[in-house]
Amino acid sequence: MTLDPGAAWDAATGSPVFGVLLTLAAYQAGRTAWHRTGRHPLVNPVLVAVLLVGVVLWATRVDYAEYLEGGRLVALLLGPATVALAWPLHQELPLVRRAAVPVLGAVVVGSGIAVASAVVVTGLLGGGELLALTMAPKSATTPVSIALAEDNGGLPALSAVLTIVAGILGAVTGPWFLSRLRVEDARVRGLAVGLASHGIGTAQMLHESRTAGAFAGLSMGLTALATSIWVPLLVPVLVPLVT
């Protein structure tokens, strides 16, 4: 019998366990770093974990598709976790009911501005029609932004990436940005971060307070809905103007 380390390595990295293990290990490292730095927003666990996964994949020459065999098993829980956002929302329901008009107003106007500004800025800076279309749905949560990019002629894979980056941007800088502007109301902070940064922003707001988390989750859900209405309305009007 001869030992073949190369084949053994390929078998190990080819197994879904590799992706699951790498994702969990990177996230645990991200959390440890986050706690050790006194929960510094820049040391966001998702950001650290994503960078670590990138470094490990590069160093081990495992490609992303292979990693995703396991990664997709972890991401599968995103469905039930989204459903679970009903729990903080339920606990905050009296507060949400009283703020129904501000919530709806902020989501309708905010998501319209998100779509319009994405198309206009990307188009005016020379991104062309394709990238403007790809940028348009980036405020909606990942499954919606992918579906909207498919329907409207963008690049779905790039829309997914832009959406994730918008999420990390919001988790890392959103709370700081709002504090600088002296926006202290937990309801408003949650609404704004949930709108601009969907689930990743919501995860951050859940750590800030239950109220902020509930409003962020609600805002994320409503923004998914509003964005899917705004994109087909605004894109045909704005794209010809800026490209």
Binding site: A99, V101, P102, V103, G105, A106, V107, V109, G110, S111, I113, A114, S117, A118, V121, T122, G123, L125, G126, G127, G128, L131, A132, M135, K138, S139, L162, V165, A166, L169, G170, G174, F177, L178, L181, V183, D185, R187, V188, R189, L191, A192, V193, L195, A196, S197, S219
Partner: peptide
């Protein structure tokens, strides 16, 4: 296409965040 993508993402993200916070504060 780094410039349109990065600037488009950051500026549009900021516009969305500020608009949502502004409208919510105003209505509250």
């Amino acid at each position: 296409s780094a410039v349109p993508l990065v600037a488009g993402l950051v500026l549009s993200w900021g516009a969305a965040l500020l608009t949502a916070a502004g409208v919510a504060l105003l209505l509250l």
